[in-house]
């Protein structure tokens, strides 16, 4: 078990390192940032001085070294637009995204998993059809359209919740549902098919032959096994919820990292964009690590492998 965790942890670090390299390369490939920082009236002198300040006069490997050294200490340089450290800006915006992600994730689990179980146990009934309907909408409607439709009905027509922004506690409902619906649908389908497979297995037959009642069969014997595929997917979900926030935060004017990324992109604020992407990666990798740990907890075949 320890060996497994150590291996996973090292893999997570390697992933982070790779991503940092990709980000570094992409930011260099996309051109010299001095073209943005300096205007047409700048002299060659300004150009060289700026290069010195930013470290652009050094060879690439040294630049990468500086980048990594800063990143390890949480220093991603200064945002151009806001003229203050990137880390400060990111930390300011992160809670909104984390909150939205957490609510959307809970929504995807709380809707997807129970509906998946019910659809499998009551296969072919109205319940199953209802589940299929929910899954169909979630998987086929694009989030920006779904967001606008939800906004139109629940905020504009019915006035039940604020249409956009982050004001009251209930302003999170629409963005969270928009963001989480696709994953709720995916979880529903995963749990349903995993559950159907498991319920048909020999060990469920043996458990019934032991005299285990139907409730315990479903909640203990079947669910624990059916949990493995959605758990794998949960790692992807958490990561994707963070990146998915780009669209949803924009639609609902939610002041989080997703919108920050878009803002940074339009303002050509490279250091800020880098900082946001690194933060996304960090969230993704952390989520994947947590899932790996849970995975081992649920499935002994992984724990002892």
């Amino acid at each position: 078990m320890q060996k497994y965790l150590v291996r996973r942890f090292i893999l997570a670090l390697v992933t982070l390192l790779c991503v940092s390299l990709i980000i570094f390369i992409m930011s260099r490939v996309s051109g010299d940032p001095r073209h943005i920082y300096l205007d047409d009236y700048s002299t060659q002198e300004d150009w060289d001085r700026m290069g010195e300040v930013l470290g652009l006069d050094k060879p690439y490997y040294e630049q990468y070294g500086i980048f990594i050294k800063g990143a390890v200490r949480g220093d991603f340089g200064k945002s151009v637009r806001e003229a203050r450290p990137v880390t400060d800006v990111v930390i300011e915006r992160a809670p909104a995204t984390l909150l939205l992600g957490a609510v959307a994730f809970s929504f995807s689990i709380l809707i997807g998993v129970p509906l998946g179980i019910l659809s499998a146990v009551k296969r072919g009934t109205m319940m199953d059809n209802f589940g299929k309907f929910i899954a169909l909408i979630g998987q086929s409607a694009p989030p920006f359209w779904l967001g606008i439709m939800l906004m139109f009905f629940f905020a504009v027509k019915l006035g039940m919740v604020p249409p956009y922004g982050k004001q009251d506690w209930n302003s999170i409902i629409l963005p969270a549902v928009t963001l989480g619906w696709y994953y709720a649908a995916a979880n529903l389908r995963l749990v349903r098919s995993a559950m159907l497979d498991v319920l048909d297995s020999e060990y469920i037959k043996l458990a019934r032959a032991k005299g285990v009642n139907s409730r315990t069969i479903i909640m203990k014997h079947a669910f624990r096994n059916a949990l493995i595929p959605p758990l794998t997917f949960a790692g992807v979900t958490i990561g994707a919820l963070v990146t998915g926030s780009l669209v949803v935060e924009t639609v609902f004017a939610w002041p989080g990292l997703g919108r920050l990324a878009i803002e940074a992109l339009f303002a050509f604020d490279y250091p800020l964009l880098q900082g946001v992407v690194i933060t996304f990666t960090l969230l993704y990798v952390t989520a994947a690590f947590i899932v790996d740990v849970l995975y081992a907890y649920v499935d002994p075949r992984i724990r002892y492998a």
Partner: peptide
Amino acid sequence: AKIRGSKIALIIQDPMTSLNPVFS
């Protein structure tokens, strides 16, 4: 359910799949 396992019990065919993989 009370009778299954107590008065009448079953041994099924395939030992590779008849035990639940996630419980000891």
